[in-house]
């Protein structure tokens, strides 16, 4: 038996909004530790890694490890039926081929449930090697979304360059070029509004705008985003989900042939 009750169905909805552009379907791996998901996009350029800790749930019970393959468009339809203040309880029997979502309004005045068919997905897990990153940049998630959106108008790629002076986002296209430089801020009492750069070595890497834009769909999950860069290694874009876990995106760089 699997049962997980989350105080805010809106949080799960935000997680779903953050991954459904990249993934058509995905397997949710449920264990004592919580719910994990790892999946590549269709083009195998990026990898999504979601971790929701069991202790972030109001109630969590997982008698046996369970993998639930779900179509994310269908799952979105289910969550569109939940109210913004509803709690959600996810339930599945061992070896079941369906999962049930129950939405409860705060005062119990409305309770709805939706049963959804599960899918058998043959998804391979990738091993992610430990990396010593050259630069780790923390910045407000809204600022990152803004920069990616602005620069995407001009080119297909964004170069992220990090030195001890700051981080620079650049693009070029048919109509010209664009650059956004962010300096490290000293506003340390408001960490989620600060730009914090931890640089071991300068690094400059090129990434697809389209994917970066998809990742910024996670902006409503967290005020802050962390970018980890290292030469010849995928970029990591990480959003912490307060009290629940994290959502990480890995993006392969564009490299000179």
């Amino acid at each position: 038996m699997f049962e997980a009750r989350l105080a805010s169905s809106a949080t799960f909805k935000k997680v779903l909004d953050a991954i459904k552009d990249l993934l058509n379907e995905a397997s949710f791996d449920c264990s004592d530790a919580g719910i994990q998901l790892q999946a590549m996009d269709n083009s195998h350029v990026s990898l999504v890694s979601l971790n929701l800790k069991s202790d972030g749930f109001e109630k969590y019970r997982c008698d046996r490890n369970l993998t639930m393959g779900m179509n994310l468009a269908s799952l979105s339809k289910v969550f569109r039926c939940s109210g913004s203040d509803d709690t959600v309880t996810i339930k599945a029997q061992d070896d079941a081929d369906t999962v049930t979502f129950m939405f409860e309004a705060k005062k119990q005045e409305k309770i709805s449930d939706y049963e959804m068919k599960l899918m058998n997905l043959d998804q391979e897990h990738l091993g992610i090697p430990e990396t010593e990153f050259s630069c780790i940049i923390k910045l407000p998630s809204g600022e990152f979304a803004r920069i990616v959106r602005d620069l995407s108008q001009f080119g297909e790629s964004i170069v992220i360059s990090c030195t001890k002076e700051g981080v620079k986002f650049s693009t070029q296209g048919d109509i010209g070029t664009g650059n956004v430089k962010l300096a490290q801020t000293n506003n340390f009492d408001k960490e989620d509004q600060s730009v914090i750069i931890d640089m071991q070595e300068p690094v400059s890497l090129t990434f697809s705008c389209e994917y970066l834009n998809s990742f910024t769909k996670a902006t409503p999950l967290s005020n802050q985003v962390t970018l980890s860069l290292c030469d010849n290694v995928p970029l990591v874009v990480e959003y912490q989900i307060p009290d629940l876990g994290h959502l990480k995106y890995y993006l392969a760089p564009k490299i000179e042939e």
């Binding site: 590549m40 195998h44 350029v45 990026s46 990898l47 391979e124 897990h125 990738l126 091993g127 992610i128 090697p129 790629s157 090129t206 697809s208 290694v233 995928p234 890995y250 993006l251 392969a252 760089p253 564009k254 490299i255 000179e256 042939e257």
Partner: peptide, 14 residues
């Protein structure tokens, strides 16, 4: 000319 690498050229099936 830049070419988009695949994530599987960095991460291998575990």
């Amino acid at each position: 000319k830049l070419s988009q690498k695949s994530i599987t050229s960095f991460f291998k099936p575990s």
